[in-house]
Each structure stands twice: as C-alpha cells, then as structure tokens.
Design a protein around this nucleic acid. Structure first.
Lengths: 230, 230
DNA sequence: CCTACCGATCGGTAGG
DNA sequence: CCTACCGATCGGTAGG
C-alpha cells in the first residue's frame, strides 16, 4: 500500500507556503512604513491593516502580537545588514576594506529608510524577550567595523585609537544619513565618498604652506583622493 | 491717594514667579527622563507626575498639553546647544575651530543623554505647530557646522567636499554617542579626541612605506596628532 | 481572513 | 495642586 510509505503519526507541520511568507513580508514592510511615520506606539495595527486593505484581526493570522511585528522588522534589518556586509570582508587591503564598509553603511541605510528609521529610533521599544537575539547580531555587526578599524590603524591608514570609538564614529557618521537625507536633494554615493575622504582621504598640508599634497604612494585611495582634491 | 499712582485697568500679568519657573524646569527634566526611557507615546503623564509625587492633573497647571511638554524639551535642548556652541566661534584658526566644534557636540550630547535622546529619537512626534520654530533653530545649528567645514576645506584642513555632507558627517559621528555611550565604560573626552584625530589628525603614510609622518607645520593640531600617534 | 466586542490605558477637563 | 471622571483609542480575543 502506498499509505504505508507515509511516516507514522501526525504529519509534520508543513513549511509555511510561499504565499504565506510573501504576505507576511508585505505586512512587515508595511508595518515598517507605518512605524517610521507614526512611531511604534502611535502607529496602530489598524493603520497597518488599513494600508493593506485588511482588518486588524487578520494580522493575527500572521503575527502573534504587535511586539512580534516590531521584532520582525528588527530581525530583517540586522540580518540583511549582516549578510550584505560580508562582501566587504573579502577585500584584502585594510584601507580599501574600511572604505568599502563606510560606503556600504551609508548606502544601505539610505536605501531602506523605513527599516532603518524604525531600527534606530524604536530600538528601546523592542520587547525584552526579543532583545538578546537582536543585540547579539548588533554586536556581530559592530565587531566587523571594529576589526576593520583595528586593521586600518595597524596599516597606518588611520591614527591610533580605540577600535570601539573608531567603529562607532564611522557607524554614526554614515548611519546618521537616515535623519537628514532628502532624496530630491542628496546623493548617497556622493555622501559616502565624502565620508571616505574625511576618514581616509589624503589630508592636505595645513595653514599658509603652499598647496603641495602628499606624494602619491600607489594606494588607490590616495591617488583617487588626490585627484578629487584638485 | 496712593492708589491713584497705580496704572489704570487690569494689572499686567506678572512674570511667572521663580518658584513656578523652577518647578516647570523640574517637570520638563523629569519628562525628558520618562520619555527617554519609555518613548514619548508610551510614557504617560501619570508616569511623569508620579516621579514628582504629583497627580497628573497638577501638571496642567504648568503645561497646556503633553505636546507642549515635548516642545519644551526640544526648545531647551536646541536653545542650550545654540548658545553653548558660540564659544567655539571665537576661535580664529579654521582647523582648531572645527576641532572645538567636534569636541563640543560629542561632549554636550554625552552630558545630557535624556534631552538628546528625546530630541533625536522623538523628533517626528513633535506637533506641527511647534515644528517650524525648532526647525529654524536646527538649521541655524547645522549652519554653524557647515560654515566651519567650508572654512576648513578652504584652509586645506579637510579635503574638498559639499559643506552639507561634511557637516552632517561630523554631526552624525559625534551625536551618535547617545546611542552607545556607556558611562561605566566609555570616556566622552577620549571619544571626542578620536573623532578629531579621524577628521583632522595627521594621516600616516599608507602601506609598506616606512613610518615617517608629515613634517610638523607648527599647527597645534598637527603637533598634537603626531605626538598621539607615537 | 472577517465581524463584533472586551478591558485597559490615557490625555484631558470639571470643579474645587 | 487635588479628586473624580469622561471619551477615545487600541491591542487582543471569540467565534466563525
């Protein structure tokens, strides 16, 4: 009999269907938009549902609580960030690696304003039971920047400093874009280059000296920076 | 008659008493603490009142609404920042002036975490009728940093860049401290110096060249940076 | 995925 | 500065 080939007992829970997962993703995305605009506490589940032409109660088919919805926004944000940052880690040159990380953070944040605005501004609203998981991933992410700073210092591309401070300075400088970026006015790529130039660019001689620049060293960063400062 | 010396009509509203103003300041300070911890929407007036051993209704003797309370937090924050930043503007040397502005922002934000956390994270919760006044002051404040960046670029202390991007980068790098600063672990002064070194410090020669630094130029920044990177 | 509904919280007011 | 209270909103559930 064919049926004897079936596993005994209750069939395992099936994986959620692709439709289900797509709908859930849509809900999470909409929630990020609503929470960005109204904040987590003032943005109601009615608001989220209405934007999807649903009733509030229907959302509970997909999430158990409003708190879980917030968690899903956080998890998607930090998980995507963690996996997309990896491409920078294959760069061997410490200065180039740090430059890539700077660009990565600025451009990523600017490209997903809803998720990152909620991630950054609603961080204290995340329920306790979700906190440790997100915190662990945040630390991983910070660690990537700390290591890159430490290597750049060792390489002589950055002045000596605590890796923690250097990493937080860079993450602040780049992430802050979510607070002021105006798509009609600003260019994330140009901003990212300005950040790279500030942190790693060739500094011209100061004061009343003649405008002679450092000799080029063959580093792609140095030569590009010298070219730009013309 | 003595009474004839009085001005005719209803006496002018007296200035609020000093006790009244002190109590109001206390309420605003407490609200900043509560809104920092719970957020503006989730932090109730009952919470604020309880921390002052008052009943909620008593707060209405001092403010007309919860929205006004938030406004007062914003106004105190940006007004204090605007007036305290002025001391940096008397510094003539563009590099030193920018260095002072960098230190100022990092240390100020770290020293008033409640006010700045609310200021930065609850900005979109500020009611429309208060928005333009705060926005105008924010722009003034940004302008200070933009001008300083432009001068530093002209002076050769910074690579060429849009003043807006340079200013936002510096404000982001320094302000971000409110999100990660741990008083038991971190030192705002040391962080501020790390920021100054990253933005204005002498960059060592890159890659496998010998560790020769730029010649000193007599600039206090350059000499201090060279000293630190020993 | 829906209708109907509950219980709790909260900003704000009356009146003193 | 207080007691007492109202009206509205909202997360969540019952039951389908």
């Amino acid at each position: 009999m064919q049926t004897s080939a079936r596993r005994p007992g209750r069939p395992r829970n099936r994986e959620p269907s692709v439709e289900y997962k797509a709908r859930l993703a849509e809900i999470v995305e909409t929630a990020a938009k609503v929470f960005r605009e109204k904040g987590y506490d003032a943005g109601s589940l009615d608001d989220v549902a209405a934007e999807l032409n649903l009733r509030k109660a229907s959302l509970y088919y997909y999430v158990h609580s409003k708190a879980e919805l917030l968690y899903r926004i956080f998890d998607k944000t930090i998980s995507t960030a963690l996996s997309s940052v990896e491409k920078c880690l294959s760069i061997d040159d410490p200065e180039e690696r740090l430059a890539a990380l700077i660009r990565h953070q600025a451009i990523m944040v600017a490209s997903e304003p809803s998720f990152f605005t909620v991630f950054f501004d609603q961080r204290p609203r995340l329920a306790r039971n979700y906190d440790s998981e997100i915190l662990a991933k945040e630390r991983q992410y910070l660690h990537v920047y700390q290591e890159a700073v430490a290597s750049a210092v060792e390489d002589g591309a950055l002045p000596s400093m605590k890796a923690r401070y250097g990493a937080q300075a860079i993450l602040g400088m780049t992430s802050w874009i979510y607070k002021w970026f105006d798509p009609d006015r600003d260019d994330p790529e140009a901003f990212a280059e300005a950040c790279v130039d500030m942190i790693l660019g060739v500094v011209r001689r100061t004061h009343d000296e003649s405008e002679t620049y450092r000799q080029e060293t063959g580093s792609p960063r140095a030569s590009r920076a010298a070219e730009k400062s013309r």
